[in-house]
Amino acid sequence: YMNRATEKNLNMRQEDALGKTLQEQLVADSVQINTMGSSLLRGREWSGPMTLKKKPSETVVSSCKAVPFSCAGRMPTHFILVFDTSSMDPNILGQSRGSVHSI
């Protein structure tokens, strides 16, 4: 799943990202990917900086938080990745991001 904010920040549509692996979407060294993967497979959260590929061959650095999710049983079946690129966009600075509590 890719929300509208991700589509806007990466200049790509959800259909463009379908079928691509995480390594194809990220500009990162293999050590960082392996560290994130091993942490997630053990059922632990991971957080750190990630560099994402934008559509017109640009990149954007964001902080990333990855959380394992289990549909059934104890082993993770899905991984949820949350990228925060708001600190990199000068148009978003100063705007409130809101929260569940504020709603």
Rank of each mutant, 00 (worst) to 15 (best):
I33G: 03
L26P: 01
S38Y: 14
V60W: 03
V100Q: 06
N91F: 00
A5S: 07
I103Y: 09
E58A: 15
M12G: 05
V27Y: 06
C64D: 04
K65C: 05
E45D: 12
Q25R: 15
Q25K: 13
T35R: 07
L93G: 01
C64E: 03
N91M: 05
K8A: 10
E24S: 11
G98H: 08
T35W: 02
P90K: 07
H101N: 13
C71T: 13
S86W: 02
M75I: 08
S86I: 04
Q23R: 14
M50N: 03
G98Y: 06
L40R: 01
E15N: 07
I33M: 11
E58I: 12
I33H: 03
G48Y: 05
L93Y: 00
P90S: 07
L81F: 15
S57I: 13
Q25W: 09
E15K: 04
K20D: 04
D84H: 06
P68A: 01
F69G: 01
M75Q: 14
R97Y: 04
T21L: 00
T21Q: 07
S96C: 11
F79G: 00
L81V: 10
F69N: 05
R74Q: 12
Q23K: 14
I80Q: 02
R44V: 06
G43M: 05
F83N: 01
L40E: 00
L41K: 12
S70T: 13
S39K: 04
T59R: 09
R4G: 02
Y1V: 03
A5V: 10
